[in-house]
Amino acid sequence: MTEPLVKVDRLTKLFPVSRGMFRRPVDFIHAVDGVSFEIAPGESLGLVGESGCGKTTTGRLLVKLMEATSGQILMHDDGSMIDVAHIGSDDLRRFRRRVQMIFQDPYESMNPRRTVFDTVSEPLAVQNIGSLREREDRVAQMLQLVGLTPPNTFLFRYPHELSGGQRQRVAIARALVLDPSFVVADEPTSMLDVSIRISIMELMLELADAFDVSYLYITHDLAVARYMCDRIAVMYLGKIVELGDTEEVLSNPLHPYTRALLSAVPVPDPTYRKPPVEIKGGITKAINPPTECRFIERCPWATDVCHSTEHPPLEDKGGGHFVACHLVEKGAG
C-alpha cells in the first residue's frame, strides 16, 4: 500500500462542561474519542453519522480550526510525515496551503461585503502568492473551472447577487485556489436544492481528479456518501464504529448502528420494502460516556460480553472492513 496522505491516530477532543461559576470543569463531552483512520492520496473518505456524533469536530480538528485534546494527525509533506498537532507557525502557514475546507452553509461562508474576487483570492493574498494581476488571472481561471463562466461576469459580484449553488461553486474555487492536496468538505450540499446538489457533487468529483485532492467528506446522508466516497466511516458518539469500502459497508453493514442507520434512510423507490429499523431509545449525549460499548444503551442485541468489557476496538473483520463490535465475528467482512 502506498503511504497515506493523512494518518489520524487516536484523535480525541473533549469539551469541558463546567457546572457552577467557579468550579473547575468536571464533566467532559467526548466529541471525538480515540478516532483513527488513514486517507490515501486521491482517495475520498466519507464521515457519516447523525448530528452530534463528532463528525464536524473531527473535520475542524483536521484543518486545525481546533486543537486536539490528544492524539496525532500526520500529514504527508514532501516525502515525510509532519505532525500537525505540533506544528510551528512557519510550517502552519505552509500547512494551510495543503489543507483546505469547504463549509456547509453557502449563505454564510462568504463575507457579504466582499466580492467573489476578494473571496477567492483571499488565500492567495494571505499567503502572499503572486501579484494582483496574477491573482486576478488565477481567480478567473478558477471560476472557469468551477463553471462560473464567463468569469468576468462573476468576478465582482457580491454574494447576495448569487444563488446558493453559485455560492458553493465560489467556495469550492476558494478551497482549491491554493492547489491543496487535502480538502475537508463539511456537508457542502446539504443546504442546496436537489437539482443543484448533483451538479455540485459532480463538480467536486471532477475537480478531485483534476487537482488530485483527497476529500474528507462529512455528511449525514448515506446516499450522498455513496456517490462521493471510496470508503466511508460511520461515527457514533465520538467513535468510529464501522469503516470500509463504501459498497462493502452499504451492502454488508456489520455494526448494529450502521444497520439501523441504513435501514432508516428513505429510498426513492415506492416499491422498496424497507427492513425494520432495529434500535432502542433516542440519541444520547456524549457527556462522560460509559467505558463499555458506546452503543450499548441503544443496541437491541447487547449481551453480557458487551456489558462487562470496554468499548470494542475497531478491528479488521476481513478485506479492510473495520468494525467496532464484540458481536461481529472475524471474517464476516
Binding site: 502552519l92 494551510r96 489543507v99 483546505q100 463549509f103 454564510e108 483571499e122 488565500p123 467556495a171 491554493l178
Partner: peptide
C-alpha cells in the same frame, strides 16, 4: 462565528 471567518483562518489569515 460565521464560516467565512473560519475560511479565512483555514486559508492562513492572521
Amino acid at each position: 462565528v460565521k464560516p467565512f471567518v473560519d475560511a479565512a483562518r483555514v486559508a492562513g489569515g492572521s
